[in-house]
Design a protein around this nucleic acid. Structure first.
Lengths: 334, 334
DNA sequence: GTTGGCACTCGGTATCATCGAGTGCCGAAC
DNA sequence: GTTCGGCACTCGATGATACCGAGTGCCAAC
């Protein structure tokens, strides 16, 4: 059952007010808010209905109302297209992307800071997966008598490193030879196909064998390197229980949790996950806004923010939208 | 003026008790604590003296005493050599370093997690500086029509990346040629000396020129890549004001602050900085324990923990000591 | 359907008394 | 002169009580 227009308006007003003040909002406030031109008694009646239908909740009798998840959901769904960012913020985004330069990782890290600064919530930026990229360069570098480093440069600019342990008596020539073999066979492959390659040389050359083994590490471990979290401190101020802050920080620290969270949210076609919609108990009072970004027309990675359920959705949605779009553009240029 | 033995014992007891309970400790508690065999009245007299001399403080009349910074300082100085870790923790460290493998960055990151897990405070691990290392490998990889990546592998295992923008019409041969020139001139240099190199080729080859320019970025920026912070969430639970937690997190996020903090502390020959000794106002209620670690006998980097002033110093000191030593060993092996 | 009016609820705040851990100090004992 | 028991005192914490007021639900009137 959908809400009649006035009820919808009242609901929106309650959510907006609560987001602003973090205080339960009563019928009086709503009545005096612009847009609703009915008496507080009427508002009360409608609010009672809205509560029965699960959009609002009373912390206790004779207090104002607070939105439920369903209430936030309605509010968010009714927002429509994100409005443009405030002038100052838009300016900040522009100047960031015009100045942005340098290397991929650095850029993603800075982007997470930008987004955190714009929204005042924690921001997550997930880099492009390596799966689609191809290997552009393979280098085997001797570091110490028993240690070499396998350095792969991917076409998307990601550099992958793997330590290779050597037998005691390995000389540089053998290392160079192994490097050449690896380069010859790996360049142009994707990480996935590379992981499946077997080489006849493996049997005779332990260096090659170990290098190939290193390429078969679980992709989970790789995900960690692609996650950049910024502004975790900012969302601390949105909560009042230290224990809760600690729990949320823990989730952010376990980056793979964040990665799977973001993936889940996108899989379900969601851009906003509210409270328990995130699927994580400690995030019951949090919301997540996610957007993918495209590089050269292909979905590449995603960015998102994590804030309290009573986050400023319009502003945060706008910020995520514009940053994801700009980031994609910036990375597409080449 | 130094303290007579009994006063010292009482002071130690107060600090230990306060660290344990986070509650002001009264004369009764101290008197009944093992080690001090005098009545509470005597303890009271001594505590009054200790307060006059600045080791203790009363939150308010008729409450127990709380250590001042000077009190903590005495406690820490009196600790002497760190006692060995508890069995379980020692076991954890051993198994970590026996399993530890893989690539430098990953290892440092994991070490910061280990240390955070051992102490339940935030842990910082700072990687070896590049200054001392020499360049082992130079690779220029074309990524896109107008973009190449300069990849340097340092002798300490660090991989440095710099984006290089290319003119529109650059073909692969010219990139390879520039790469060869760079490799020839840079391999064996330190980053410092490399930054000073000028080449005659720069005039004729814009690629070489830009690559050299990229090597001259401020070292501050490089520091960021070498800092690994683990367990920031853990120290949240040591405080009760969300605002304070937020401030401390902010400091941790600004990694360069942490780097300079650690450097300062080490410069002053300190291993423990208590409260305002850290030199940072928001850390007035925090203490920092730092230790350097050596690779092949040379001071390489440092590790540390950041916790509340009433942190468990004996345990944290022990953890920092053993981890720094083990980490150095592990990285020395080659 | 909307509105003003009204009795009611109940969390928040202030006031006040009580409690008790802890103090400082004094005078006696060793 | 150092230690210790005793004692009056302080003051935060705790709990009871009252009060206020924002907010509610309901009803009768428009």
């Amino acid at each position: 059952m959908s809400l009649d227009e006035r009820k919808a308006q009242i609901l929106r007003a309650v959510v907006a007010e609560y987001i602003d003040t973090a205080q339960p909002v009563g019928s009086g406030r709503v009545a005096s808010a612009s847009g609703v031109n009915v008496s507080s008694a009427t508002v009360r009646n409608d609010m009672a209905t809205l509560e029965q239908e699960g959009y609002l909740r009373q912390p206790h009798t004779s207090a104002g109302r607070v939105p439920t998840e369903k209430g936030y959901r309605f509010f968010v769904d009714a927002l429509g297209d994100p409005s443009p960012l405030a002038g100052r913020d838009a300016q900040q985004v522009r100047s960031f992307f015009s100045k942005a330069h340098g290397e991929l990782e650095e850029m993603l890290r800075d982007t997470s800071r930008l987004l955190a600064g714009l929204t005042d919530y924690a921001a997550v930026v997930i880099g492009p997966p390596n799966e689609a990229a191809t290997i552009r360069s393979v280098q085997l570098v001797a570091l110490a008598p028993q240690l070499a480093l396998l350095v792969l440069v991917m076409s998307n600019g990601v550099v992958e490193k793997h330590s290779i342990e050597l037998a005691d008596d390995t000389d540089d020539l053998r290392i160079d030879a192994a490097g050449a073999v690896l380069a010859h066979r790996l360049i142009g492959e994707t990480p996935v196909s590379a992981a499946q390659i077997t080489m006849v040389e493996s049997a005779s050359d332990p260096i090659v064998a170990e290098a190939l083994a290193a390429l078969r590490v679980q992709p989970d471990d790789k995900d960690r390197d692609r996650v950049f979290i910024g502004g975790a401190s900012r969302m601390a101020s949105s909560f009042d229980a230290v224990a809760q802050v600690s729990e949320i920080l823990q989730i952010l620290e376990q980056q793979y949790v964040v990665v799977s969270l973001v993936r889940d949210v996108l899989d379900r076609g969601l851009h906003v996950a509210i409270g328990t919609e995130t699927g994580m108990q400690p995030l019951a009072d949090c919301s997540v806004i996610v957007a993918p970004y495209d590089i050269d027309g292909e979905a590449a990675g995603s960015i998102g923010v994590l804030g309290p359920t009573r986050m400023n959705y319009p502003q945060a949605l706008a910020a995520v939208a514009v940053v994801s779009q700009r980031l994609g553009n910036r990375l597409s240029e080449g």
